[in-house]
Design a protein around this nucleic acid. Structure first.
Lengths: 339, 339
DNA sequence: TGACAACAGGAAAGCGGTTTCCTATAATAA
DNA sequence: TTATTATAGGAAACCGCTTTCCTGTTGTCA
């Protein structure tokens, strides 16, 4: 049987207002009554109903987290970071997996909408018109991860994808590679994949190499897909000497494909990834990549979000965090020292 | 500004009871009024406040999911399966990461307790006394994944860990291996790790080999830890010819360690894992393992839980799903055909 | 000792829905 | 045509907690 605040009040011989005050320290209560109430609460193991509390307060203590795919280690790591802060601040997290599906994204957003959660952490490949409408019309705090969105009044956290991709491409070029292929994500338009692609393109151009469509592979976020794409690619472009995969999962698919084609990594073809998911250092060969501070991004995003939930005016709410190039076995790092 | 049911009622010229009836089809309403109400709802884009609804209904539409670590691909896959069903049934999922920490586990359970969520999907390495007390005293539906618990009135879903481990060990033994090492998880006592360990032990004994403590490695769920453990192990036990890692992450750590010691997998040492996480087939070499129907377990667990939330009496509520031995490159499968 | 401020704590009004209860009206039977 | 039964729909209670509002007490100062 459930115990309510009324029951506690009855047993302690006070009004429920007093019980509420004792529990929330919202107004002074005489020591004697205070103790009496506390004792009854203790005895009955009373826990106030969070739903009722939420109704009265107009907040639920819930943060919505919308991500494409939890089985992608990048997002798992992000969620881990988010969770740490959420927990620490006494919130809970409602996890929503969109599987990169725009309809699901919108339906989840609507589901979480107004009043249900106190704020949303949102990750998407592409910010559409509908998203904008949604976020504009809804007054609840939102933080974007992996995407800045200047025309929307949301906080955000990201790295400089363009520059990182530029750096890693240059890393290949500097050491003599000329036929550098790229594996890019499907979406165009202001996505991080787009930024990475342009970083690659411009780095190549800086070395006088025009964009060569036959060196551009398109894949998605599934290893399997990249694997197939790369195997097909290798039949047509056997002369490639380096591959820049725009995510570590893509790099894994690529390396596996190369090895299954009997091509040695890194000796015949070098591969670099992006993200630095935990597996990147334990894959064989371990993967050269761009380290994003993934969990840190999750933590920081959540801190910002919660401050905004609490009505704080956060000044620095659109962050670009530093990245780092990590050289591992999938590129011949011995050559690096010569640079 | 927020629109409430009162506002809708006012504009439609009916009572809020009628609006509620229209929205829930809980009682017939004259066509004319029905249409009028629907139109106002449409116009205003009215969405009933789920918290208020929850208060009245005494349910939140939330399912708590307690897992050790979302960055472990096994759990990520599980959560994916859970999510699919949760979403389909119009529930939402509150994700809780315990990081294998017992205190966090209990504090999360308490947090989710009574009335906050409608049910809990729970995964833990070890079911303690405190857990039992908690689940006994709380009347909310609970489903365990990866653990059956006969003395507790909870539904559960699992595979036969003992037999699977027995099979995979026998798979090594049949093909002539005698020095088969095992990497086991830390906890003892009724855990799936315990079952797997015993399956190994008994399979060895069936071949007349007594348990040899020097062939037993202890590690945890982190790749890094296993990596270090195996490297250390190899200095002392270079004669090992096969390693049974009781999880795929352990297998990855082990293979990486072997390769870094200059030992060829599978030619010098064979390795098998457990779980069949997605990475198992894309690692290099791909990993022989026991396939658990991970996402399926998540889905089924959730279906059972939701039926129990709805007050159904589920008959078959303690399931043991089939597993499957998957041979890949980390063992010399050519030998298999000869068996 | 009287006037006024400070304070503790109860009653009641929300928060935003759902549902019971009851009445007025329409439909059916006699 | 009248008595009886269905039915639609409004008023109000309720879910369980918070908070405002107000009153009765105590404390302070002149």
């Amino acid at each position: 049987m459930k115990i309510t605040i009324d029951e506690v009040a009855r047993r302690a011989g006070v009004s429920k207002a007093t019980v509420s005050r004792v529990m929330n320290n919202s107004k002074p209560v005489k020591q004697e009554k205070y103790d009496r109430v506390m004792q009854v609460i203790e005895e009955l193991g009373f826990i106030p109903n969070p739903v009722a509390r939420g109704l009265a307060h107009q907040k639920t203590g819930l943060v919505g987290v919308v991500i494409p795919d939890i089985t992608n280690p990048f997002f798992a790591e992000l969620v881990k970071g988010i969770e740490e802060v959420v927990r620490d601040k006494n919130y809970n997290m409602v996890l929503c997996n969109t599987f990169h599906n725009f309809e699901k994204e919108m339906s989840y957003l609507k589901m979480l909408r107004e009043k249900y959660v106190d704020g949303i952490i949102f990750m998407t490949a592409k910010v559409t018109h509908e998203h904008r409408d949604f976020f504009r019309s809804s007054q609840l705090p939102v933080t974007f991860i992996n995407r800045k969105c200047e025309d929307l009044n949301v906080s955000s956290i990201d790295i400089d994808n363009y520059q990182a991709a530029h750096d890693i491409t240059t890393f290949f070029l500097k050491r003599g590679h000329r036929r550098v292929a790229i594996i890019r994500a499907p979406l165009t338009d202001k996505t991080s994949g787009y930024e990475r692609f342009h970083g690659y393109r411009d780095a190549m151009q800086a070395y006088g190499i025009e964009l060569n469509a036959s060196l551009v592979m398109r894949s998605n976020f599934k290893i399997e897909n990249t694997y197939k794409t790369v195997r097909r690619f290798l039949r047509e472009e056997p002369a490639v000497t380096a591959i820049f995969a725009t995510s570590d999962l893509m790099a894994i698919g690529a390396i596996k494909a190369l090895q299954d084609e009997g091509i040695q990594v890194p000796h015949q073809v070098e591969v670099a990834g992006f993200d630095d998911i935990p597996m990147a250092s334990y894959y064989h060969p371990s993967i050269t990549t761009v380290r994003q501070p993934i969990a840190e991004m999750g933590r920081t995003a959540t801190k910002i979000l919660i401050r905004e939930i609490n009505g704080e005016k956060v000044k620095n709410r659109n962050l670009i965090l530093p990245y780092q190039l990590i050289c591992r076995e999938s590129t011949l790092t011995s050559k690096v020292s010569g640079e």
